[in-house]
Computed example of a mutant assay.
Amino acid sequence: MSSARPAGLPHVDAKEPAVLVLPGPVTRDEVAALCAQVRMLLAGRGARVVVCDVGGLGPPGLAVVDLLARLELAARRAGGQIRLRDPDPALHALLDLVGLRFQVEGEAEDREPALGVEEAVETGDPAL
């Protein structure tokens, strides 16, 4: 007895990542609920990544850094991670300053070439 093969490639997850839009200034009381929402998005959709839209968070500060660190911790404990969408350049600099690294949507991941970049070959170069 044989069964039909499922459509698509066997080891490719075609699901879109879950998106969490972080509203304006987040209070300390809202952090636990947002962490629970990250865990729910990872568990409910079977996703490995939650994209956090941070464009509306307002001016970056240590409260924002604390929020993002807690969201990343909640995601990792649930077996996933967060990726930032639309971070302010000042937020990116502040995260680098405190030593936190986050994937940013649209940036090439480590060891991946940026999209659309091709290596130039000059004529006369010996082949390696």
Score class of each variant (00 low, 15 high):
M1C: 14
M1Q: 14
M1Y: 08
S2G: 12
S2F: 08
S2I: 08
A4R: 06
R5S: 12
R5P: 04
A7C: 09
A7S: 14
L9A: 14
L9K: 10
H11L: 14
V12S: 05
D13E: 14
E16H: 07
A18G: 07
L22C: 06
L22I: 08
P25D: 13
P25T: 12
R28H: 10
R28N: 06
D29R: 13
D29L: 12
E30F: 04
V31N: 01
A32S: 15
A32V: 10
A32R: 11
L34P: 03
L34E: 03
C35D: 07
C35H: 04
Q37L: 08
Q37N: 12
V38Y: 00
M40K: 15
L41V: 08
L42Y: 13
L42V: 12
G44Y: 11
G44L: 10
R45D: 10
A47I: 09
A47Q: 13
A47N: 15
R48E: 13
V49A: 06
V50A: 04
V51S: 00
V51L: 07
V54Y: 00
G55V: 00
G58A: 11
P59R: 09
P60G: 07
P60T: 02
A63P: 01
A63S: 10
A63C: 04
V64W: 01
V64T: 05
V64S: 03
V65K: 02
V65S: 02
L67Y: 05
L68D: 00
L68H: 00
L68N: 01
R70N: 03
E72N: 06
E72A: 09
L73P: 00
A74E: 06
A74F: 03
A75K: 02
A75F: 04
A75C: 14
A75L: 08
R76E: 12
R76P: 03
A78Y: 09
G80C: 13
G80L: 11
I82S: 01
R83A: 10
R83E: 13
R83Y: 06
L84N: 01
R85I: 01
R85E: 05
D86S: 15
D86G: 05
D86H: 14
P87V: 02
A90T: 00
H92V: 07
L94E: 01
L95G: 00
L95Q: 00
D96A: 12
V98S: 01
G99V: 04
L100P: 01
R101F: 11
F102Q: 03
F102A: 03
Q103L: 15
E105V: 06
G106V: 04
G106H: 05
G106N: 06
E107I: 06
E107Y: 11
A108V: 10
E109Y: 12
R111V: 10
E112P: 04
E112F: 11
E112V: 13
G116T: 03
G116A: 06
V117K: 05
V117H: 05
V121E: 07
G124F: 14
D125K: 11
D125M: 13
L128Q: 09
